[in-house]
Design a protein around this nucleic acid. Structure first.
Length: 511
RNA sequence: CGCAGGGUGGAGCAGUCUGGUAGCUCGUCAGGCUCAUAACCUGAAGGUCCCCGGUUCAAAUCCGGGCCCUGCACCCA
């Protein structure tokens, strides 16, 4: 059976993890966890892009070997994954042998197929910065000081015949509306493609850049970093081996909107086409996090690092926040106020407090066991009815990456559970000595427990840790193994289970 | 210039593709409850859905025009 294969972009080793990296991994993780719960075997890949000029330069600046730098940065990013509870199945680094072998075999194959040719590359070059320049690098029509002397040079390089696939690519994008998501991004790509792209220069002379994968057919050159990096999606799942069939084509590739063009919508499809491989099913381009809080931070002398919130409020709270706030594909603003509002309001008040008050009532009124629910009235029916209505919408939202709407629906349910609690007022029923009131009290708590179980199960992809804690508190230990549809059906399965003591899931954080 | 995205009660956002009494969260005001994390529940006030025009029985939504904000190919989620 083919795996559901999804990837994030691989992060570039020249820099520290930031909000965007964290978001992308969480998004991918939520999708991966959801698919697993739906019973699909999932292969979730992320990793690190380690070659190229920037890495070489940074390493030189620090006086260390590039590989040392990469090892350190890889550690930082893996730590990030760990602290966010990312459930990736593989972490690929482009300096690994398994990757280099694939890059070289792909290059050799394309070279033999005449997809790669040698030609003169002409351009403006700054020897001081050791890089090629573009007209747009000019400031007010002049080269900035730091470029030093700018000369026109010509050097031989290898090119990939991208233009060969230009007409095919345009047609493919036009006829595959699900290829690029959100759809409006496809329009942007087609706009870009109105001008025929040039063939892609895939080599760098070793005398200028040594930190890369050598071309198999010319030892004087290394591979251009994008060409190298994109192939990680193939090298991780056994390109050239039988195993590839268990993963390819890749189902979802999650990337930032900035690397959609030209890398993932031009280079990558053309490379795959030349290799006679199927296209990715969906390229999912997300937006950017803007941090407007920097002004506020300056005035208070505090620099707010978004990842500090993981430490402050926990991974699940961070995951909830980024999934709830970001509408897929659009940009979104991060601010302390918004984070705290979501944390204290949504998580603390609506959710955590509901769990707490329910467990407390179960302990106080029912000896910490979930009672039998053999009483039903209009309020109770309405609650079940509501769940029946939103359940397909929640599944649909997960399917279409609208995680924020899935969460919105779940919180709607949580509010209804809080309202139901008020309507039935178990604390009043508990004072009565009538049998009927006792039955009503028990049924109320049973209904609340079941409602909470359903919400928490549907919340698993976004908040795995919290879900586990709450399910355990409801006396369930193996619920995670249940199939998505099965676990989200209203049932009586909780009856008789002994529940945990009330604990505060999301302690209030002031400030 | 052009292209793409956005402009919805005090704040932040859904909704726009598939027209049908404008929805959510926060905030404000009033009330209720006391199981609970100064929490929860109820009610109220508050909107020319950027502007102009068109299509339609009906427009936040479709069409045309205009204004404003943000991005746009070294690298960057």
């Amino acid at each position: 059976m083919k795996h559901f294969y999804l990837t994030t972009a691989i992060d570039y080793a020249n820099g520290q993890p930031h909000m965007g990296h964290a978001y992308e991994k969480v998004l991918a993780d939520v999708i991966a966890r959801h698919r697993r719960l739906c019973g699909q075997p999932v292969y979730f890949l992320t990793g690190l892009d380690e070659h190229g000029q920037k890495v070489q330069q940074t390493a030189e600046k620090e006086g260390i070997e590039p590989q040392q730098l990469c090892d350190r940065v890889a550690g930082d990013f893996q730590k990030l994954c760990h602290s966010l509870h990312i459930s990736h199945d593989d972490y690929i680094r482009t300096t690994e042998k398994r990757h280099k072998i694939v890059v070289q075999s792909v290059l050799q194959k394309l070279f033999e197929q005449d997809e790669i040719y040698l030609a003169d590359y002409q351009g403006l070059y700054s020897p001081r910065l050791e890089q090629f320049l573009q007209e747009k690098d000019k400031v007010d029509g002049h080269w900035p000081e730091e470029f030093g002397e700018v000369i026109e040079i010509s050097e031989k390089n290898y090119f990939f015949r991208l233009r060969r696939y230009y007409p095919w690519l345009v047609h493919y994008i036009k006829t595959h509306p699900d290829f690029i998501f959100p759809h409006f991004r496809a329009k942007q790509v087609l706009e870009f493609l109105k001008d025929e792209p040039n063939d892609l220069c895939i080599s760098r002379p070793k005398k200028r850049l040594a930190w890369g994968i050598p071309l198999p057919f010319d030892e004087d050159y290394v591979t251009y970093v994008w060409f190298d990096a994109l192939l990680n999606y193939l090298s991780a799942v056994g390109y050239g081996e039988e195993a590839l069939g268990h993963y390819w084509p890749v189902d979802i590739q999650i990337i930032g909107k900035d690397i959609l063009l030209p890398a993932h919508t031009i280079y990558w499809p053309c490379m795959l086409k030349a290799l006679e491989l199927e296209m990715p099913r969906t390229l999912l381009a997300h937006g950017w996090w803007l941090v407007s809080g920097s002004k506020m931070s300056k005035s208070t002398g505090q620099v707010v690092q978004p990842l500090d919130y993981v430490r402050l409020c926990g991974a699940d709270a961070f995951r909830y926040f980024v999934m709830r706030e970001m509408v897929i594909g659009q940009d979104c603003d991060f601010s302390h106020e918004r984070f705290m509002a979501r944390y204290n309001g949504d998580l603390g008040n609506d959710f955590g407090n509901l769990v707490h008050r329910l467990l407390h009532m179960l302990r106080r009124y029912c000896g910490s066991a979930i009672p039998r629910g053999n009483f039903s009235d209009a309020d109770d029916q309405a609650l079940r009815q509501h769940w029946q209505e939103i359940l397909p919408r929640i599944s649909e939202a997960y399917q279409h990456f609208a995680i924020h709407s899935a969460l919105e629906l779940l919180w709607e349910m949580l509010r209804l559970l809080n309202r139901f609690t008020e309507l039935r007022s178990p604390w009043s029923l508990a004072k009565s000595s009538r049998d009927e009131d006792r039955k009503k009290l028990e049924a109320t708590l049973a209904t609340l427990a079941e409602g909470l179980r359903l919400v928490v199960n549907a919340l698993q992809p976004v908040m795995p840790e919290t879900s586990r804690i709450v399910l355990n508190a409801l006396g369930l230990t193996s619920e995670a193994n249940l199939h998505w549809d099965q676990s989200l059906r209203w049932s009586q399965g909780l009856e008789g289970r002994s529940v945990g003591d009330p604990s505060v899931l999301f302690p209030r954080v002031e400030g």
